[in-house]
Design a protein around this nucleic acid. Sequence first.
RNA 1: GAGCCCGUAGUCGAUCGGUUAAGACGCCUGUCUUACACACAGGAGAUACGCGGUUCGAUUCCGCGCGGGCUCACCA
Length: 783
Amino acid sequence: MLEKLDTNKLEEKYTKKWDEEKTYKFKNDPNMKKYTIDTPPPFTSGELHMGHVLSYSFFDFAARYKRMNGYDVYYPQGWDTQGFPTEVKVEKKHGRLPPAEFRKKCVEWTEEMIKRMKSQMIEMGFSPDWDYEYKTMDPEYHKKVQLSLIRMYKDKYVYRAKHPVYWCPRCMSAIAKAETEEIEKSGKLNYIIFKGPEGEDLQIATTRPELMHACVAVMYHPEDKRYTHLKGKEITTALGKKVKAIPDKLVEKEFGTGLLMVCTFGDKDDVLWTHRYKLPIIEAIDERGKLINAGDLDGLKAEEAREKLIEKFKKEGKLVKQEDVKQAVKVHDRCKRPIELKSSLQWFADIKSHAKEIKEWASEIKWIPDFGIHYMTDWIENVDWDWVISRHRVFGTPLPFYVCEKCGYSEPAEESELPFYPESAKTKKCPKCKENLIPEQTVADCWVDSSITPLIIAGWPDENYKKLYPSDLRPQGVEIVRTWAFYTVYRSTVLTGKPPFKEILLNGNVLAPDGRKMSKSLGNIISPSELKKEYPVDSVRQWAALSGAMAKDRPFSYEDIRFSKSFINKYWNASRFIEKFLENYKHSKPEKLKLLDRWILTKLNGTIKSYTDSMENYQFHSALHKMHEFFWHDLCDNYLEYVKYRVYNDTEKQPALYSLYEVLYNSTKLLAPVMVFTTEEIYRELFHSPESGSIHNSRWPKPLKITELSEDELILMDEFNSIVSSARQFKASNRLSQNSELSSMKIYSEKEYPDELIDELKNILKVKIIKIEKGEFSVSMEI
RNA sequence: GAGCCCGUAGUCGAUCGGUUAAGACGCCUGUCUUACACACAGGAGAUACGCGGUUCGAUUCCGCGCGGGCUCACCA
């Protein structure tokens, strides 16, 4: 017997049971068709947020749906563990430690975070097979990442070179373009006097005067009449240095004075011009962001130097004016500090010369929604440089190479040396200059780790990996298309010759209810654990399904989650009601179904069809909508009321019970992927048979083999329903209870009413006499 | 500046050319009618951002404008 609904109890009970019964086990059965999900390994922050819940719910729905459709679902869960934020946390707690010890502390800390997140995932009813859990910090994982890099090195995808890179002075590491963010900052545009060839004043405009010591040219637009006479002439900077004036179309005439200074590493254009015009390279800033080659300004931070210099120019009368400007400053996405461009010896992965192929590989994948691919192609088209894969950090996968510091020679570690750790690496001689080779000290960008997840989960490099590769589904957030999706498509295809997944499902961010980003500073964060205190997990999961707008940010909606909770209640109570009558019921198809029975079963069939269709296309939102409509309104508001007189009074009870059974049984199954706990309880309590086990391993419903209502009959039923509605309305407006009797009813209709339906109306509405006449549809009645 | 999404009742959102434009939340009026008051029965509330065009017919397709969002590039 179903008891009063206690969702907490159900959640506890079944979480345990599913674990014991290994309900979500990947069978690895060669005879079964496979469905592989390349799940996102979350960064191990220790806290599951609403974005996780949304995204993870989506593929949990898919996994459960596929399982019920007879697939052997391979749904592993991994953890993206290494990286800067962990180092910061551990450093805060333990201070600076020698690398090996520090790494150990990072691992300990991460294990703790994983424990927390894992239990939150289990609470949410997610159904991975935990036997296939992976962590990017495991030596086994390191080994595979390193192997992938060695292979890419041998195939000339990975190389070491000196090249300008984005550099974070705070983190003292190179970072990739994808890790940069822009924030708007207000700054000053300074107009400073340089001297022309005749000693005349020339004003340049700059926001970064502190880089002037590295000024190597002055630029203007080739059609700017004010300056064309300067072509090739020597200009003297405010610091007294002589540089050439060069025209270039990239210069904006309208900005500032139309004249600017080039400082090698000021910004991307500076780097471009330096290369284009083969200008001398002057390092202006060191890895800590402090000035070098700047005489008495050496060692100062950029901001300090800027102030000093402006002061100096003011005194000398070389500062004409300062204008307030809004500028976009590139910052490191993890630490939010402004970044610099720096020429540096780093490891790169060649993406620039493969942009076209990567685009083709991406187009072989089905993007859901289809416009999602734009995020990727737009990004590829704007790639300027190759991907910097080396990071000057500790908690990461060591790059498996040896380098000669003297001549620049490099070679990969042997495959037998893997996993490779620099502190335990071999001693080797440089074959070129006989110096000692030193093991590479940098680690890989975290995206190097995570960009081979489809290979890792499939068991690569073991040849058997082909059985599980490519993955069927890659679910992920739209904000990491340019990183995770991009790098995965690139690396995995390079390594295997095949794009890494067949379909990619994109989800957006969860915003605060007010439409703004959730953030600590705004205090508008909604956490899953808080939500869970007030709402059943099944309603949180329904919220996720209802937020289904793919690849779009959506505010969190309390309305949706409250509605979901009400629906669970409705579903539960309807089940209890039906259970009462099924007590001594033997399930078998009656010879004759009544019209109303066929009506609800026809509706059921329609729901099964459209629900299945929506699930096939990951349209959880519309699937659930149709279900709500059917279950709440067709079933509860109408059909249940229609059959009450039959089940209470034992008149033509069997067909009604048969219909109720089928409707509830099949609805329960349809709802199972989303409402995992409540459906399990109802399934086991009402429909369980020993061999069937969990609903989550039961078969997905198919439309029943019944004589469905014809189009005409369905239209007739619509009219029937509106007659009922009129009667209810009539009773309500006459302050009568709904089960009060009516003496007579007159219906005008263009349709033929079978006697059966007239009798139904009499019984359902308690009307003594009903008259039907031909005419435009209308209903009238008397008390 | 470029590309992409989008603009439907107070709010959120269906309707992928065709009768009176779903549904939810909120609001109003009744009802504790033996599953459910987290409910039921009803009600009010939308000239579908604007203007053109295609069409027998447009909320739905196209163009322009206005207004939002996202991504990228943003200028020293």
